[in-house]
Amino acid sequence: MSGIGSALLNSLDIGLLLFIIAVGLNIVFGVLNIINFAHGALYMLGAYLAFTLINIVGMPFWAALLLAPLGVAILAVLIDRFLLRYIYSRDVADSLLLTFALLLIINESVRMIWGSGIQVVQPPPLLAGSMSIFGSFVPTYSLFVIAMGLLLLAGLWYLFNRTRIGRIMRAAALDRDMAEALCINTRLVVTGVFAFGAWLAAVGGVVAAPMRALDPGMGDKIIIESFIVVVIGGLGSFPGALLGALILGLIHALVAVISLR
């Protein structure tokens, strides 16, 4: 196997998956001014819902990719309506406390519902196996992860720069009072953005499920990496999240190759 080439490709799939997750964290912070500690737990919920839909209900992977993130987004709406709305006007530290509590509750719920063992989701038949690119074996699923990441990247860029919804979200992030004065229902925007962030986390979870083993600690692992991405790229910055995720992916993949020499 030609080391560097496949390591670079490997770094792209890690990086773009991290981007999908970290960008959700960033959007929520940008608009809601909340650092969502439970973001990793929502990612895990996405993965476990996909596991249930695929391995237990028997749905195809693609149906799970559609339904699981939707389920997590609905849960996020409830979290926003019943919990988060009481702390929007308070200090950021309060949101850290509340979302950290949510993380613990979701982690333990996953343990109670699905058990603390390790679960595995198989990739869909179309993406199973590996193919040969430039003489090195690349798992087909990695290419799908890269494609998904690029698709979401393009979609998010379009959403924020070219659509009315995107402009409303940016307006609410910049100056919520002014947006309110201009007849924008910021309450709806806030709920929508939180649900959207959760949806992104859960999409990341479903996409990760066939290539990463599921266990109740997977959310904690990813939230730490997402925070690293956000710290590298800057809290609330969209291009920063991309850059941070790619850098972290590159470090993951290259250190393994270099340290072997």
Partner: peptide
């Protein structure tokens, strides 16, 4: 070990 080992074995299978 653990989840990392599960990932390792599955990826190793994938790459022969």
């Amino acid at each position: 070990w653990g989840g990392d080992l599960v990932n390792f074995v599955r990826q190793a299978n994938n790459r022969g």
